[in-house]
Nucleic acid binder design. Structure first.
Lengths: 219, 219
DNA sequence: TAGCCGTGGAGGTCAAGATCGGCGTGCAGA
DNA sequence: TCTGCACGCCGATCTTGACCTCCACGGCTA
């Protein structure tokens, strides 16, 4: 009946699985475990106990590496925000043909969302948007990606800056939403087909706006 | 400096402001108070104490009208989900000209988001998406609106059902994302101008897909 | 005027974030 | 090889905060 009768068979060292790790390796392992738990359960439903258990360590170690739950979450969020922005930047820099740019950007969104870790949920489906730090980061991502796209739009159209920005936000949002829907559908449409459809929609929509020299279609 | 100095002038009874109300009126008032608090603070940060205080009643009355916090939230969510679907349905039924349909749908999204209550946050920015009941309702909204739109798309194109659905989700998402961005910008672009831009983007994107009879543009 | 019913403030419970003393391991030096 | 030391880890606990009910009070009806 005594609760301390847990019959722990510790092989010989006393550790459950991974044994003692150097500090940076342990930190990375904790980040990995936290990512899995946060992605699967969201911020609020994820308990620090869950993360510690997933990593095979006890709670105090978690607090020896991160000041608190929020900082742990922000570390992951920053990492994946940066990854997305870089992916979009890469897609836009890969070519100067704007049609191909649209395709590559759409492809980048789909690849980001399709990553097996599911980490896109931290950015696009966070349940901590009330926290100022999180909201600020998520908005910074949309602002950064949309700014990259809007520069391209503004290069070839006569649209004022704010309007180009609105369209850029729209195109990025279109990619994001459709990619998430496509993923949630679970593969009834092949990815390349979905990318082709969405980039066609974006490209035909964009190329109709007035261009330098008046080549644009008016309506 | 004391926070409890709210100078409540209770007219003559013991009630703070509204006095005794019939049951349905009280319920509506509680829903209104809950909506304000949930919109302003999100689900998790909102406390039942806050809602009761906002309504000028005490907590037990809240629990006499709603079994718990979740049910209160779901009641509001259902109300505003239904309102959005009906608005989109109305926009699509207002005409048979598809270009005007796109404009009206976009306009409906902007109007929905611009509503002074800010209730769109319950649907588009909920921080309770891990809760199955909430997730299910939010997905039902996107499914319902996109289905309405996809039927229109499928009427005039040769696209298979799944592809039309993907495009419909995309167009709805485009409206939703741009409307929210436009609102967050706080009026640097007039609403009509934003609607015009976004609906141009959507319409030009959509009308290029292959139509019955082969009139569509191929790429 | 007497009873009833709804309201209000104070409190219970519990989950989850955050923390303290003890233990065991591996290494440095003699 | 033996011994002392330092470090990383763990069980057990504290505390906070939020959801959810119990005893007194005052207006309405017969």
């Amino acid at each position: 009946m005594t609760a301390s009768q847990d019959t722990d068979e510790r092989p010989r060292t006393g550790k459950t699985s991974t044994g003692r790790l150097p500090r940076s390796a342990r930190r990375n392992q904790l980040l990995g475990a936290a990512e899995e738990v946060f992605v699967a359960q969201g911020y609020h439903a994820a308990a620090m106990d869950d993360i510690a258990e997933r990593a095979g360590v006890s709670k105090p170690v978690l607090y020896q590496h991160f000041p608190g739950k929020l900082e742990l979450y922000l570390a992951l969020l920053d990492k994946h925000c940066e990854a997305l922005v870089e992916a979009i930047r890469g897609a836009l820099e890969a070519t100067t043909d704007n049609k191909l740019r649209v395709q590559a950007t759409t492809e980048a969104y789909f690849a980001y969302v399709a990553a097996e870790s599911g980490a896109f949920r931290l950015v696009f489906e966070s349940d901590l948007t009330n926290e100022a730090a999180v909201r600020e980061r998520v908005e910074a991502v949309t602002r950064a990606t949309a700014t990259l796209v809007s520069k391209v739009i503004a290069e070839d159209t006569d649209l004022p800056e704010e309007e180009a920005m609105l369209l850029a936000v729209g195109v990025c949002g279109l990619c994001q939403i459709t990619a998430r829907f496509w993923l949630a559908q679970g593969g009834t449409i092949p990815k390349d087909e979905a990318v082709r459809l969405v980039s066609s929609l974006s490209w035909r929509g964009l190329k109709g706006f007035p261009m330098h020299g008046g080549e644009g279609v008016t309506h």
